[in-house]
Design a protein around this nucleic acid. Structure first.
Length: 425
DNA sequence: TCTGGGGTCCTAGGACCC
DNA sequence: TCTGGGGTCCTAGGACCC
């Protein structure tokens, strides 16, 4: 049976989320900043039109922000995560086979839906999502994921398509590919694009008809798969049930330079706890813990970075145990006299709960400790992240990241629920 | 003053084994 | 003086994604 994939992609997702509950920015350009208010990571259409490039450091576009009255927001992941869930739940109305690919994208399997007018079906999905969540989306429909990605670009770019583009059984497919630069193909990054250009392959159609042996040699099997997908041969399947993560990272830049071991210990304790919560959520244990620190590479000042990892005799998901080791690693790699910008924690060697090898001389997590962890997670889930932290993460936390333009937690905090006031006319 | 964070997959090369 | 061939496992680094 021929496969059909739809890709649903939220438009300017973070910026759209900020607009849903804040009508005052509906007609203003909106930009959302990365963690630490570092770079622009999401832009409304108006901001794109003003020429503000994705990834621009905030301090480099402040002039434009003032001149054009751009509304600026710090990243509010609690809000975006919740809005994402609403969008995904809406999509589940349309097919049971859905892969949540990222916070703002989902692949839907529409195989077996050929009897429908796929374009109209897409339009229906789009209307419903916008009505139920307030988030505008673009939808691309095609025989492979790679082609669905291309279709979505067209749906977004060509206004006459009204947000939906189907390339299923479409004789114009090669024309569409011809108009698609290779660097815009999903999975073709800067380096691969350069190689393709060097061989005179500038658009997706040329790539499609290129010599497969050459493709395999220079772009590996990954490139070969992409090429196959351009031929409508599906090689990248729908992953409905994503496998558990193989590593969990928590790393952050600091709001200001950090110089003391004390503060760095606090920071990695906090990061370790956050990573451990994710670890427990996917019901895994970690065998390896890694800690790293780095100075600010953009500054002309003494640079230092280092990392250290420990392997446990028996895998664990205990926040306290992990944090203790994280602090010990930090003590080992810390050198005084530097201004640190960033620290991170990696949990690796992840195995499913219940598959751990007990070690005779290793203090394995007791049942009581496990109950304590469960309690911690329940409370943090219910009252918001950071309601309960571990003491070694400190209270004052001078290293905390900057978030000067944070919007309220409209959907997840009682006190932040928007209030609509009637005015007398 | 101010430059994000969290992932995956693939390959090459070294260690080690039979 | 000569130094096969095949296999596995691990790690670091490259490339890419959102």
């Amino acid at each position: 049976m021929k496969k059909i994939f739809a890709l649903v992609d939220c438009n300017n997702f973070y910026a759209s989320c900020e607009r849903v509950f804040n009508p005052t920015v509906m007609n203003r350009p909106v930009a959302v900043l990365s963690n630490n208010d570092g770079c622009v990571v999401a832009r409304s259409d108006e901001v794109k039109a003003l020429g503000v490039v994705l990834g621009t450091p905030y301090f480099k576009c402040q002039k434009q922000v003032r001149k054009h009255n751009i509304a600026i927001f710090s990243s509010n992941y609690t809000l975006y995560g919740d809005m994402s869930q609403r969008v995904m739940e809406t999509l589940e109305q349309f097919t049971p086979d859905i892969e949540i690919y990222s916070i703002d994208e989902a692949f839907l399997s529409l195989s077996g839906f050929e009897h429908l007018n796929l374009y109209q079906y897409g339009r229906n999905i789009r209307r419903t999502v916008e009505k139920w969540t307030g988030i505008p989306v673009s939808i691309g429909i095609a025989a492979t994921k790679t082609l669905a990605k291309i279709a979505t670009r067209i749906a977004k770019k060509e206004k006459s398509f009204k947000g939906v583009c189907s390339l299923v059984n479409d004789s114009r497919l090669d024309d569409v590919l011809k108009a698609t630069p290779v660097e815009n193909i999903w999975g073709i990054g800067r380096r691969s694009a350069k190689k393709l250009h060097a061989r005179g392959l500038y658009n997706a159609k040329r790539f499609k008809y290129a010599n497969a042996k050459w493709v395999k040699k220079h772009l590996t099997v990954v490139g070969l798969r992409i090429q196959q997908e351009l031929w409508e041969t599906s090689c990248i399947p729908l992953e409905q049930f994503p496998p558990p993560k193989k590593q969990i990272i928590c790393s952050r830049s600091f709001g200001r330079p950090v110089t003391s071991l004390h503060d760095l210990r606090e920071a990695v304790s906090d990061y370790t706890h956050q990573a451990a919560m994710k670890l427990r959520k996917q019901k895994s244990l970690a065998e390896v813990l890694q800690v790293y620190i780095a100075t600010n590479r953009f500054k002309a000042e003494p640079q230092y970075c280092n990392a250290m990892h420990v392997t446990f005799p028996s895998a664990t998901a205990d926040s306290f145990q992990l944090a203790r080791f994280a602090c010990r690693c930090m003590e080992r790699i810390f050198r005084s006299g530097y201004r640190y910008k960033k620290a991170g924690v990696v949990l690796a060697g992840l195995i499913p709960e219940g598959e751990s090898q007990a070690d005779l001389f290793w203090n394995t997590s007791s049942l009581r400790k496990q109950k304590l962890m469960d309690g911690l997670d329940v409370i943090n889930e219910k009252y918001g992240h950071g309601s309960i932290r571990i003491a070694s993460a400190g209270i004052r936390q001078p290293w905390q990241m900057k978030r000067d333009f944070m919007s309220p937690h409209y959907t997840t905090r009682w006190n932040d629920i928007p209030v609509v006031k009637a005015t007398e006319s």
